Structures are given as structure tokens and as C-alpha cells.
Simulated scan of single mutants.
Amino acid sequence: MVRKIVGASIILTVGGITSLSFTSKSSSDFSSYSTAGLDLEYVVPNFDEIEDGEGIEMMPKLGMSYIGFKEALAFKESRGNYAVINQFGYLGKYQFGLSTLELLGIRSKSDFLDSSELQEKAFYANVARNKWILRRDIKRFVGRRINGVEVTESGMLAAAHLAGAGAVKKYLRSGGVEGFEDAFGTTVRYYMKRFAGYDLSFVVMQRNAKVVL
């Protein structure tokens, strides 16, 4: 076998027969492949920070107002589906239990599921009610860190939606020792972390908040 190199060409000859030949350019022009002007920023999730079996999700980005809070929480609860009923009987966009709805003055399951307006008012009333129940704990604990998570008003109220205001009180007052976990394994700590930092000044606390259409 004879190997000849001619310029930038390589030719292999076996028994006088050329078996392979290719030619490459000595230099390449990559100007047409420029990344100038392209947005190359992206975020790779840190899987060490994904908790409680949560996968990667896309959720609405509506800022840190009450609207952003309620839509982010609704996305976590039901993907924002007003008509859904889960396997445990929780209802609608915000996954209310029947006992909570009764406290808010709603007694018709079908009416609740059929009305987006009713569901939105129920959510506001429940946050207003929980804000009143937790008013002393909000003053006492906001800004502290429990189990590595900074306590915020919105985190507390999200956790109250998940577990009830009483469970949030127990968690905070025990320094995070007395926790709560729902049927899916979601904890008070997780909701306090995930929904921290929203501005809920729009919500006025009410002791006996009821839904009025």
C-alpha cells in the first residue's frame, strides 16, 4: 500500500488501484455561522433543588402581585382548570374541599364548578379569612427562617390554602417540627418556599369572609 499526500489531498493506493480519496480545504469560512445578535441565555434546572417529587414545570409569569400569586397557585393545584375534580374530591381551579366551601357560604358543588366567578371569589375570601386567622403569626414570623426557608406572608397563606391555617400555626410555632403532608406528599415547607415573596396587600383580612355574588 502506498499513501500519498498531495497538498491537502490524501490518496491511498493498494496494488496500483486508488481505494480512497478526499480533499479538505486548508481554511474554512465560518462567518455565516455567527451567533451575533442571538439570545443564548438559558437556565438549566438544579435537580438538587427539586423537592417532593416535583418535575420541571412551566407556569404563568404574572409578576409578584395578588394576580401572580393566585395564578401560580392555581397552576400548581389544577393547571388552572375550573372544571377539574381530583381523585380525593377536591374541586375546581384552586382545588377546594367541600368543608372549606361551606365555611365560605357555598353549598352547591355543581354551581361552584360551573362558575369561574364563584371560584375566584371563593379563593379571595379564603385568603382573606386565613390572613385574619394568621394575623399574629404574620407579624411574629415574617422574615425568620424555618427549615432553611424564609417565612413570608404569601408563603404562609399559600401553605394555609394547602393545609389549613391551623397547620401553618403548628408548623411555625414548633419551629418546623410539626409539619403537614398531603396525600401527594406536598408539605407546608414546600408551599412556603414555592410561593414566597408575593405582595398580598391587595387582600383585606376578614374574620368571617363569605362569598357574595
Score class of each variant (00 low, 15 high):
E51I: 04
E54V: 07
G55M: 06
G55A: 11
M58R: 09
M59Q: 05
P60W: 02
G63A: 03
Y66R: 00
Y66W: 15
I67V: 15
G68H: 12
F69V: 04
K70F: 13
A72K: 11
A72R: 07
A74T: 00
F75L: 01
E77K: 13
E77M: 10
R79C: 01
R79G: 12
R79N: 10
R79Q: 07
G80H: 02
Y82V: 04
A83Y: 11
I85R: 06
I85L: 04
Q87H: 08
Y90T: 14
G92I: 02
Y94Q: 08
G97N: 08
G97H: 03
L104W: 06
G105P: 06
G105K: 13
G105N: 10
G105S: 11
I106Q: 03
R107S: 05
S108R: 13
D111E: 15
D111R: 10
F112A: 12
S115D: 15
E117K: 12
E120N: 15
E120V: 01
E120F: 01
F123V: 00
Y124F: 11
A125T: 01
V127S: 03
A128W: 14
R129V: 01
N130L: 08
K131Q: 11
W132Y: 15
R135C: 03
R136T: 02
R136M: 00
R140M: 10
V142E: 14
V142F: 06
G143E: 12
G143K: 12
G143T: 10
R145D: 06
G148P: 07
E150W: 00
V151E: 06
T152F: 05
T152L: 06
E153N: 06
E153T: 15
